[in-house]
Lab assay of single mutants.
Amino acid sequence: SSGGSSILDRAVIEHNLLSASKLYNNITFEELGALLEIPAAKAEKIASQMITEGRMNGFIDQIDGIVHFETR
């Protein structure tokens, strides 16, 4: 797709992000992006959206560029 990722790509990214949230206590956007094979800024945006929508527990430290995952 030309304008970003398809629905399937997005679903795969979100699935992998949720998997990462179970493996890590926290991770930088750079590391997360590398893990998900997407730019760091996109990793931040998707993580932020999932947390806001209540689909993933955690919070974002924008100063240090880190996602902190919280286990249920």
Rank of each mutant, 00 (worst) to 15 (best):
M56A: 04
A47L: 10
S48V: 09
K45N: 08
H68W: 15
E37V: 07
A34P: 02
S21M: 08
I27C: 07
F69G: 02
S48W: 13
A41C: 07
G54V: 02
L23H: 09
L32H: 00
D64I: 11
S5V: 12
L17T: 02
A43T: 03
G33N: 01
I63P: 06
E14L: 05
E31I: 07
F59C: 10
T71V: 10
E31T: 06
N26Q: 15
R72S: 11
F59V: 08
I13H: 06
L36T: 01
L8V: 12
I38A: 01
R72D: 10
R72N: 12
G33C: 03
D9T: 06
L8K: 11
V12I: 12
I46F: 08
A20W: 13
T52P: 00
I63F: 08
A41L: 08
M50R: 01
I46M: 08
V12K: 12
L17W: 02
G58T: 01
S19N: 13
V12W: 14
I51L: 07
V67M: 09
G4A: 12
S48I: 11
L36E: 00
N57T: 10
I7E: 12
I13G: 02
A47S: 05
E31G: 06
I38S: 00
E70W: 14
R72I: 09
M56D: 00
P39S: 13
G4K: 10
E30A: 11
E44C: 14
H15I: 11
Y24E: 01
S6W: 05
M50Y: 03
K22N: 06
Q49H: 06
N16I: 15
E70M: 10
P39E: 07
N26T: 13
E31K: 09
L17D: 01
I63L: 10
M56G: 01
I51T: 01
I7S: 12
E70H: 14
E30N: 07
F69I: 03
A34Y: 11
I60C: 02
G58L: 02
K22Q: 08
A20F: 15
G58H: 01
N16R: 15
S2W: 04
L35T: 02
L36W: 04
I27W: 05
E70V: 12
N16F: 14
S19L: 15
I51E: 00
V12M: 11
F69D: 00
R55H: 05
N25D: 09
G54S: 04
A34W: 09
E31F: 07
E53M: 07
G3I: 11
L32M: 03
G3F: 05
S1L: 07
S1M: 07
L18D: 03
A41T: 09
T52C: 10
I66F: 06
L17E: 01
N25E: 10
E53F: 04
I46A: 04
S2C: 10
L32A: 01
D61A: 06
I63M: 08
R10T: 10
T71H: 13
I13N: 04
I63R: 10
P39Y: 04
G33K: 02
I46S: 02
A47G: 02
E44Y: 14
K45F: 13
M56W: 04
G4T: 12
R10M: 14
F59K: 08
S19Y: 10
F59H: 10
A40M: 07
L23P: 02
G58D: 01
M56C: 03
F29R: 02
E14T: 04
L32T: 00
G54K: 07
